[in-house]
């Protein structure tokens, strides 16, 4: 029976059909998707914190508004993705509260970039420009995902990311056109983020689960392909605004058509994600815990109010 279902499922995948939440799917398909989307959702929500720190400090009214809108979008993306993850988790008996609690227990990981400090306004700019730029590349690569609910949500997310792209570029361009102190602030921020940006795409080797995800057409590109695309798009622009990339080995090899670069410290950065021991990991998880636990009485109150209204 399962064999027939599996064969039928794979035939659908190969025909390029989209799988829906209520459809039969192999367990490992569900698990791979859930792990990916859960991490994606949590990264969006945790990704709001480094930028949120800059909302009250944004230096003009316009920047204040655009940063608020941008952080709101990130949380909104978290909401969209959480809903997709919740539907996948439901047959496993897991709810939104479980998925959120996983952040606190370390059961779900979030992207390395959101474990780092953003000590200056230029960091807010670099996040908007390059971290979002990297995220746009990985998200765009998932648009053809075989899972319909994820693919649909990604279309909406990518449409909103186009505003984030402009928002980030606008901050960077203003700093790059600014005073020597502003340009220096920007250069320092780039140096803080560069290695983490390379790490963001993941290790170059194709792991077993990555291979499986390609087989299931959850994703179709390798980490390294995406990193190369990022380098091709952003290195010329980074240099164009007068910034120095802190990697003396970085160059484009005309023969192979590929960028060579100094490998990020996979071990150190990987541990940061695995063990939540980045400079800001604990603090930001603490914020999430605060939101979740300190506001539990509010969520309970809504349920009680609902019951009170019914009697």
């Amino acid at each position: 029976m399962t064999q027939t279902l599996y064969t039928r499922f794979m035939a659908r995948i190969e025909r390029g059909e989209k799988i829906e939440a209520a459809d039969w799917m192999p367990d490992d398909y569900r698990q791979l998707l859930l792990r990916l989307i859960h991490m994606h959702a949590v990264s969006e929500i945790m990704g709001a914190y480094p930028e949120k720190e800059w909302v009250p400090r944004a230096p003009t009214l316009r920047r204040k508004l655009s940063l608020m809108a941008k952080v709101q979008d990130e949380i909104g993306h978290g909401q969209l993705l959480l809903r997709v993850a919740e539907d996948l988790a439901e047959p496993l008996g897991r709810t939104r509260d479980d998925l959120m609690r996983d952040v606190m227990t370390g059961r779900v990981k979030f992207h390395n970039v959101f474990h780092l400090e953003a000590p200056t306004w230029a960091d807010a700019g670099i996040i908007g420009w390059l971290v979002d730029g990297a995220a746009i590349i990985t998200q765009t690569a998932l648009l053809d995902c075989s899972y319909g609910p994820y693919a649909r949500v990604l279309r909406r997310i990518c449409a909103e990311e186009s505003f984030h792209m402009q928002h980030g570029e606008s901050i960077i361009l203003t700093l790059a056109e600014g005073t020597p102190a502003q340009r220096e602030m920007l250069q320092e921020a780039l140096e803080r983020w560069w290695e983490a940006l390379l790490f963001f795409f993941g290790p170059p080797e194709v792991t077993a689960s990555a291979r499986k995800m390609m087989e299931y057409r959850i994703r179709s590109r390798t980490n390294e392909e995406l990193r190369q695309k990022f380098l091709s798009r952003y290195v010329p622009r980074i240099r164009a605004v007068g910034l120095r990339i802190p990697d003396s080995r970085l160059r484009f090899d005309e023969e192979t058509g590929r960028w060579t670069y100094t490998e990020p410290d996979w071990e150190r950065l990987g541990r940061m994600v695995r063990e939540n021991d980045g400079p800001k990991s604990r603090e930001r998880i603490g914020l999430r815990r605060r939101a979740h636990e300190e506001q539990a009485w509010v969520r309970d109150a809504l349920v009680r109010a609902g019951h009170a209204a019914m009697v």
């Binding site: 929500i45 709001a48 009250p56 952080v71 949380i75 909104g76 978290g78 909401q79 506001q295 969520r299």
Partner: peptide, 14 residues
């Protein structure tokens, strides 16, 4: 705006 990321639920946050 100081509530960003800290509201009782993600829907309310937005």
């Amino acid at each position: 705006s100081q509530w960003l990321g800290l509201a009782p639920d993600v829907e309310e946050d937005v």
